[in-house]
Amino acid sequence: MGLRLRRPLRCGDRGGGSDSDRIRGSRLTERPWRDVLDVHWNRLETERPSNARRLRVSDLPVDSAKGNLAAAIDLDGFRHLLVPVDSRQKVRPGLNGPVLLLRRRSLEGIDTFQTYADLACLRADLNDLFTGLCADVLKRAEASTDNPVKALYTELDRWKSLFQAKSGPLGAEQQSGLFAELTVLVRLLERDSGAHRLWTGPEGHRHDFAAGRCAIEVKSSLSSEGRRMRIHGLDQLAPPANGTLQLAWFRLERTSGDGTGLVELAERVARLCEDESALRTRLSQAGYSSADTEAYRNVRFVVSEERWYEVNADFPKLVGNDLRAAGIPIAVSDVHYTIDITNEPPIPLDVQHMNDALSRLIEEPA
């Protein structure tokens, strides 16, 4: 719902040599963004909104291809940073208090209508920290005016990383598993730059990639013999309801010079992705931290074999629904097992069917 505003207060409108005017005219190598924000918010606080549907808004001296960033104060006196976005652009979900609130908001002025990513601080005692975060957003947005919301996401993730416990670099098996998943993700992103949303494994989903009735599970092996894979749980090889599941299996060889580096592959994925911040969040959830880049610098793999399978009734697996249908009661948990597909059947899919599976996943409604 659009919010009708009085004419936004613009710091510097009044005559004379105000602090705002001096900051606005500053051409320092690094703008004092904290001071800029404090001037705008302090002046907005002198005129509180008249009701709960109004904000007091002040354009900031950071212009972008989508409009000016702005400071705002709401009825409760909470501070907001407004970052312009396209009218149909979605705003990243998940940040909903109790300290920070991020949502999509459309504001209507006398002669203007603008949609924003609205970041609000819901605790006045943390205003100083919020100012520091917003100052970093302004600095980054000024350097990259074509996509200001990307600057917002990047800084939110950078600040969040300050409070995340570091678990150390991934082990060899984890590295190979991530490499295989990123290999599939690259192919999806080459088709759709927003396909990072389909990478659901890092968020705890039972399948590595999923959308609607389509899913893909990815497995890797560093062994030079056989085709074995470890399955975790009775639902990992269960297709979505009334849907399909493909299993991608990669045999990887660790190399010292040839092949593709794990860091190189992660950076390629980030370049292909339309929301790099969201992608790096998923990488972090998968255990890959940029702080460990040096530990991964010499990690390189060659894909020596790749097979895709349709996980259908003939594919070897243990699935909860199948056991229940056979009248076998399930009273166990934490089930892990190994399947061996060294010999055929099952018959792997050809390249066309593999590409069809990738395309269906992208086209499937979330």
Rank of each mutant, 00 (worst) to 15 (best):
R4M: 14
R7P: 01
P8K: 04
P8R: 03
G12P: 01
R14P: 00
G15D: 15
G16R: 03
S18E: 06
S18R: 03
D19M: 10
D19V: 15
R24P: 04
S26I: 07
P32G: 08
P32E: 11
D35V: 15
D35W: 06
V39C: 15
N42R: 14
L44E: 02
T46C: 06
P49Y: 13
N51G: 13
V57F: 00
D59H: 09
L60I: 09
V62W: 02
K66W: 12
G67F: 13
I73Y: 03
D74M: 06
D76E: 14
D76Y: 06
D76A: 14
G77W: 05
F78D: 10
H80M: 09
V85E: 02
R88S: 14
R92L: 07
P93N: 01
G97K: 06
P98C: 11
I110A: 15
T112C: 08
F113N: 10
A124I: 10
A124M: 12
A124D: 07
D128P: 01
T131M: 04
D136G: 05
D136E: 08
D136M: 07
R140W: 03
T145Q: 14
D146W: 10
V149Q: 00
T154M: 04
E155Q: 15
D157E: 15
L162P: 01
L162W: 13
F163M: 13
F163V: 12
Q164D: 12
Q164A: 13
A165S: 11
A172Y: 04
A172D: 10
A172I: 08
A172G: 07
E173V: 12
S176K: 01
A180P: 00
T183Y: 11
V184P: 00
L188Y: 09
L189Y: 04
G194R: 05
A195M: 02
H196L: 14
W199A: 01
G204M: 03
D208R: 01
D208N: 06
F209S: 02
K219F: 10
G226E: 08
L237A: 03
W249M: 04
R251W: 08
S256R: 10
S256N: 13
G257H: 11
T260P: 02
E264Q: 09
L265V: 02
E267G: 08
R268H: 10
R268I: 08
V269K: 00
R271D: 12
E276A: 07
G287H: 03
D292E: 10
A295L: 05
Y296H: 02
R297N: 07
V302M: 08
E306A: 12
R307I: 06
E310S: 14
A313S: 10
D314L: 15
K317D: 02
G320R: 04
N321F: 09
I328G: 01
A331F: 07
N343M: 08
P345H: 13
I347C: 09
P348I: 13
L349F: 07
Q352A: 14
L358H: 07
S359C: 08
R360C: 12
E363K: 14
E363M: 15
E364D: 11
P365D: 12
A366H: 07
